[in-house]
């Protein structure tokens, strides 16, 4: 991984026309929270600044106006406009871009993307679990992509997926096959609702983490309680490594669960106490 040179900001794409849904997708609710709020809160756990990308005519919309907005500043249509507008607004930032209509997106998926970021590429993105092609709407877009996207759009094209197929992008294998499933129709919404509200929905666990030595200093705390969807210590470390900017890779650590050394792939249970153990130096 190349050392990241630009900070990463978050962009939630919420400027779509929701034509197939026949109602504003940003307002769809899951588990009592709007899609837009869910996406914003999720994003805010991974980046220092998060914006909602909207069309200029949506800026006064009360659902959106509660959040920092990034208005479309280039012409055309589709998500490429939001991505280009963000890159233009903060040329010194890379952007973790997500669509607001990804109800199955999780902390682990964003954390893995952040830790795998290659700032020397135009973008870092997942491959689709369906067809293996790049997923542009859960991806990190680097500043270098700004000029290339402009040329791409000037050539009469607007599909960001096509752009990623043709350009230098780091592509990751999917972490969770349905994480990037988006919701376009009322039927898909009903299915997603059922799935999220059913008992077999991805579990979220309350996990206690204690930090020692270098990790304690980098986290700025000696413990925290975390609500996480990470099912294993390995994915939990991916999540908190991104959040706290830990310099140690997982291969340098050991892990303990409930006061005893543990396997990285152990299934975590609610209330587990986890300690990531940096290289030791007794004596």
């Amino acid at each position: 991984m190349t050392k990241a040179s630009f900070p990463v900001f978050g962009l939630i794409l919420a400027g779509g026309t929701s034509s197939r849904m026949r109602r504003d997708k940003a307002t769809l609710e899951y588990l009592g929270k709007s899609q837009l709020d869910r996406a914003f809160e999720l994003m805010s756990r991974h980046v220092p600044k998060t914006f909602v990308s909207v069309r200029a005519d949506q800026a006064a919309d009360s659902r959106r106006a509660q959040r920092p907005l990034l208005l479309d500043s280039v012409g055309g249509g589709g998500p490429i406009v939001g991505i280009r507008s963000a890159l233009a607004a903060y040329p010194e930032a890379a952007w973790l871009v997500i669509a607001c209509d990804l109800p199955f997106l999780s902390d682990a998926v964003l954390a893995h993307l952040m830790s795998a970021r290659d700032a020397a590429q135009m973008a870092t993105a997942y491959r689709s679990a369906r067809d293996g092609l790049p997923e542009p709407l859960c991806a990190i877009w680097e500043p270098a992509a700004a000029a290339a996207l402009q040329v791409f759009q000037a050539g009469g094209r607007s599909c960001p997926r096509q752009f990623l197929i043709e350009t230098r992008a780091k592509l990751l294998e999917p972490l969770d096959p349905r994480a990037l499933d988006n919701i376009n129709t009322p039927e898909e919404y009903v299915e997603a609702l059922k799935s999220l509200e059913s008992p077999s929905a991805p579990r979220r666990l309350q996990i206690k983490i204690q930090y020692y030595a270098l990790l304690r200093e980098q986290a700025g705390r000696s413990e925290e309680s975390l609500d996480t969807a990470a099912p294993t210590p390995a994915l939990l470390y991916a999540e908190i490594k991104a959040r706290h900017g830990f310099s140690l890779g997982r291969e340098q650590l050991k892990v303990a669960v409930n006061g005893e050394f543990s396997d990285w792939e152990r299934t975590l249970a609610a209330g587990d106490s986890v300690v990531f153990i940096p290289p030791v130096a007794g004596g």
């Binding site: 270098l214 030791v280 130096a281 004596g283």
Partner: peptide
């Protein structure tokens, strides 16, 4: 002790 015990 130096190699296995979690002391930093």
């Amino acid at each position: 002790v130096k190699h296995r015990v979690p002391i930093w």
